[in-house]
């Protein structure tokens, strides 16, 4: 995507009310919604036609109202490596997150609870992060994962756990520092300590770091 034109988005959402709302929101924040469709097949067709910069899709869509949107997203990522896809779901599930993150190389992908669109600015930040090749996972998924792996995580201090959760959401060191009201250097120290305690290789690249954490949590 180039800076001098609006990022082009293909949006798939079967609820007309929500689709119109999302188009309004995205337009307001400078995106160009080139196609807004209501089912997974139309999504695949629209992506083929418009080759957008980002795809935003719902999970549950006609005809089966199962997880059509998720499968379409996985398919798109396999067919078009590097196409950023943000998946919105009525509720988040580890299993869905795993399927999505395993597709492609795990970069330029986001999985958010649909509720998050209410926090308009955070939602747009997440979309930007995904469009820029980052990985964004809903805090709810992270919470599920953290709850699951209690024992090894018990070694982390409460502050380190906070940092880990924010890391897994794809936040940069600066963003984490801002959220926790500490210095970036302190965040860097926490991260080093977390990666050591979890036996993860140190990494600079934000999304690689997220992936490492998620891979560890999922294993």
């Amino acid at each position: 995507m180039s800076a001098d034109r609006a990022p082009r988005i293909v949006l798939a959402e079967d609820s007309v009310l929500l689709r119109d709302g999302l188009v309004g929101l995205l337009t307001r924040f400078g995106y160009e919604v080139v196609a807004a469709v209501g089912d997974a097949d139309a999504l695949l067709a629209a992506v083929a036609e418009h080759t957008p910069d980002v795809v935003v899709t719902d999970v549950r869509m006609p005809p089966g109202f199962q997880d059509e949107g998720l499968h379409a997203a996985v398919k798109l990522r396999e067919e078009r490596p590097g196409l950023p896809v943000l998946v919105l779901s009525q509720y988040v599930q580890r299993a869905y997150a795993a399927e999505l993150l395993d597709s492609g190389d795990g970069t330029g992908v986001g999985y958010l609870l649909k509720d998050r669109v209410g926090q308009v600015e955070e939602f747009v930040d997440a979309l930007r992060e995904v469009a820029a090749g980052g990985t964004v996972v809903d805090p709810e998924v992270v919470r599920q994962l953290l709850r699951r792996r209690r024992d090894p995580l018990a070694r982390l201090t409460p502050r380190e756990r906070e940092v880990l959760a924010l890391m897994a959401e794809g936040k940069s060191n600066g963003a984490i520092a801002k959220a926790l009201v500490v210095s970036e250097a302190a965040v860097g120290k926490h991260i080093g300590s977390i990666l050591t305690k979890l036996d993860l290789p140190p990494a600079d690249d934000t999304h690689r770091r997220v992936l490492a954490v998620l891979a560890y949590l999922r294993s």
Partner: peptide
């Protein structure tokens, strides 16, 4: 969801 988005 639409409502929270409008409020946001």
């Amino acid at each position: 969801v639409a409502l929270t988005m409008r409020l946001g």
